[in-house]
């Protein structure tokens, strides 16, 4: 495979063409728009000024939304990791003949509209939802608990949306691990836990980090769970963009917020690629074997 430097480009060309025309150029339009002005009627006026960016940092209101978005994303990643790793590990370990069935069950929520799944939490957490209904019925509480329209409910919705992403990413990576490696470790006197810690866990890290990145980034870009399950103070940055672009037709300001969010996420992804990059992991693997 030497001297065939053209080959990867052939393989990449369809994707790159699509991305170039449908992502790169359109994003340039967004960047250009972020310098424009908005007329009171909602029309856009071409200009070159930084007013939209200045407005964002004018006071603490907009940055605080950005910060709380990052906090919610971080919390969601941690919870997804805890609730996702264990089922993924179970799939990897189990020899049950129901395994394909269980795997399909994990995929199943994907098949149900995201909006419906988000709405469904209202049936569970609402004042007349399942939990309150049961608690009231068994006289545990005398008046309904307010579980909806707060950050907890938003995270619930996010978690249900994102958990399958995490489980599948970890599982795909676990599945690629040669089971004889853990057997070997155990025959050398390792306990189950040690074998997991020393062999399985490190080898599953590509999946874990890919899953974490995915969950984090998707949380930062979503607006439906806060819109449906959150209270007025739980808005996230994507809600703000949605409101500015669609609500007030303020495309220039909405573009500016989008550019800021994109830059932030790019820094995160760049860092990820740099320190935990797929490539990096591949290299260490090939060096060891």
């Amino acid at each position: 495979m030497k001297d065939k430097s053209w080959k990867p480009w052939v393989l990449l060309s369809p994707s790159l063409t699509a991305i170039f025309f449908l992502l790169v150029i359109p994003i340039c339009f967004v960047i250009v728009y972020s310098f424009w002005l908005r007329a009171p009627s909602g029309a856009d006026i071409p200009a070159f000024q930084f007013g939209n960016y200045a407005k964002f940092f004018d006071d603490f209101f907009y940055p605080s939304i950005l910060l709380s978005t990052l906090r919610v994303a971080f919390e969601t990643v941690i919870l997804c990791l805890v609730f996702g790793y264990i089922p993924a590990y179970f799939f990897y370990k189990t020899r049950s003949r129901f395994k394909p069935f269980l795997m399909l069950l994990v995929m199943l929520p994907f098949w149900i509209s995201f909006i419906i799944r988000t709405l469904s939490w209202i049936n569970i957490l609402g004042d007349s939802g399942l939990i309150n209904h049961l608690l009231l019925k068994f006289h545990v509480i005398s008046s309904p608990l307010a579980m909806l329209y707060n950050e907890g409910a938003v995270i619930m919705g996010l978690l249900q949306y994102l958990l399958p992403f995490m489980i599948l990413n970890i599982y795909v990576s676990l599945d690629g691990i040669d089971k004889s490696l853990t057997e070997a470790a155990k025959s050398l006197g390792c306990t189950e836990w040690q074998a997991f810690k020393e062999v399985t866990l490190p080898l599953s890290l590509p999946g874990v980090s890919a899953g974490c990145l995915l969950v984090f980034v998707l949380t930062c870009g979503t607006y439906l769970p806060p819109m449906i399950l959150g209270g007025p103070g739980n808005e996230m940055i994507a809600n703000l963009i949605f409101k500015r672009i669609i609500g007030t037709l303020d495309w220039p300001f909405g573009s500016a917020i989008s550019v800021l969010l994109m830059v932030l996420l790019m820094v995160i992804v760049y860092t990820y690629n740099r320190y935990m990059g797929i490539n990096q992991i591949f290299k260490t693997l090939s060096n060891e074997s």
Partner: peptide
């Protein structure tokens, strides 16, 4: 291409291709 070949700008292109998930869909 990314896993089997070495070429210039690989990191950058890899990031570029996964960029769509970083960008909120509204945008």
């Amino acid at each position: 291409a990314f896993i089997r070949y070495e070429f210039r700008g690989k990191q950058f292109l890899n990031t570029l291709l996964i960029a769509p998930i970083m960008i909120p869909e509204v945008v």
